[in-house]
Computed example of a mutant assay.
Amino acid sequence: MRKWLLSVISALALAGAGFAVINFWPIGAEPKLSTVEGSVQRGVYLARMSGCIACHTDLENGGKPLAGGTKFATDFGTFYSPNLTTDKAFGMGSWSIEDFAKAVRQGISPEGEPYYPSFPYPFYAKFSDQDIADLWAAFQTVPGVAEPTKPHDMTPPFNLRAGLKLWRGLFFKPEPFISDPTKSEQWNRGKYIVEGPAHCAACHTPRNHLGARKTDLALTGADRLPDGGSSPAITSEYLKQNGWTVSSLSYALQSGLMPDGDVFGGSMGEVVRDGTAYLSKQDRDAIAIYLLEGNE
């Protein structure tokens, strides 16, 4: 009996020590962007492209722009988007541009805590320093809203935020965007938008039991989305087999209308309404060109 008790105590001690190591495990790198000058106009456009307004505005309950509170129910618990306004107490009013860069590209808060990957920072890792400066300049124009961020309601053990460091070690491989010199400028622009700010694979790629994307099945569609729906494949093969062209796909990203006269529903309808409808025709064409010609 005594040996059993000592074994249990030893196991608990080891588990506690292991958690302590994970808890104090430093993550991330310190960016330097203070000398980069941003453009508000470019930043607003990039924010639309990235889905910032759609995810961080609780339209269903009449929330103010970028004040957070949008609810996302998942298998791991319920997430609430945070306040991104300039309010110093509840938003980003006390942040520096370096804090912002670290949060957006690395998924780490100013306090050094990892963000849950419901925030698509693995895609935003492709943002350049100029992209970050532009976004930061745009967010500085947002009026402050004194609205506290709702706490996430996570199912144990996913409520232990320090455990996300292990998830990051397994699945987070930040890579800057690298253009392909063998492809056209428009193709490369489409690749950047799809794989970066628009984070198309976040919804159109299946995930494993830990919520990480199955990268070998990129853009092949997903059976379960947070809203309870599913997403179709958007690979080149699938799109061509279903009659999509550059022209029809570009138009659908603006209007929500599909070639058969039906409309995008669910979360894709929101993506168009709050995001892609604001993109230039040139960028919508670039997305269509990349998806139809570049991801085979």
Score class of each variant (00 low, 15 high):
R2D: 10
R2P: 00
L5M: 14
S7I: 09
I9P: 05
L12W: 05
L12P: 00
A13D: 05
L14A: 14
F19T: 08
F24W: 10
W25E: 10
P26V: 03
L33E: 03
S34G: 12
V36F: 03
S39E: 10
R42N: 15
R42L: 08
Y45P: 00
Y45S: 05
Y45K: 07
A47P: 02
G51V: 03
G51K: 01
C52S: 11
A54Q: 12
H56K: 04
N61S: 10
N61C: 03
G62C: 12
K64F: 03
K64I: 01
A67I: 02
K71I: 09
F72S: 04
F72W: 10
F79V: 07
P82E: 08
N83T: 13
L84A: 05
D87E: 14
K88G: 06
A89Y: 03
G91V: 11
G93K: 11
G93H: 12
S96K: 14
F100W: 08
A101L: 04
Q106P: 01
G107W: 03
I108R: 08
S109M: 14
G112P: 08
E113N: 13
E113F: 06
E113Y: 04
E113W: 06
P117I: 03
P117H: 11
S118W: 09
S118R: 10
Y121A: 01
P122C: 08
F123W: 14
Y124Q: 05
F127I: 04
S128D: 02
D131C: 06
D131M: 02
D131Q: 04
I132M: 03
I132Y: 01
D134S: 09
D134I: 06
A138M: 05
T141N: 01
V142Y: 00
P143Y: 08
G144M: 12
K150S: 02
P151C: 07
H152N: 12
H152M: 07
M154P: 02
M154L: 15
N159W: 02
L160F: 15
L160H: 09
R168M: 13
F172T: 02
P174D: 10
P176S: 15
T182D: 11
S184H: 09
S184A: 11
Q186S: 12
Q186V: 13
N188D: 09
R189A: 10
G190I: 06
I193Y: 00
V194Q: 01
V194L: 02
H199L: 01
H204D: 07
R207I: 09
T215D: 14
T215L: 15
D216T: 13
L217I: 00
A218G: 11
L219N: 05
L219K: 03
L219R: 04
D227Y: 02
S231F: 02
A233N: 05
I234K: 10
Y238A: 10
Y238R: 04
N242R: 11
N242A: 09
W244Q: 11
A252N: 10
L253W: 06
D260K: 07
V263Q: 14
F264Y: 14
F264H: 09
G266P: 06
S267A: 14
S267Q: 15
G269M: 00
V272E: 06
G275N: 11
A277N: 12
S280Y: 05
R284K: 15
I289W: 08
E293Q: 15
E293G: 15
G294C: 08
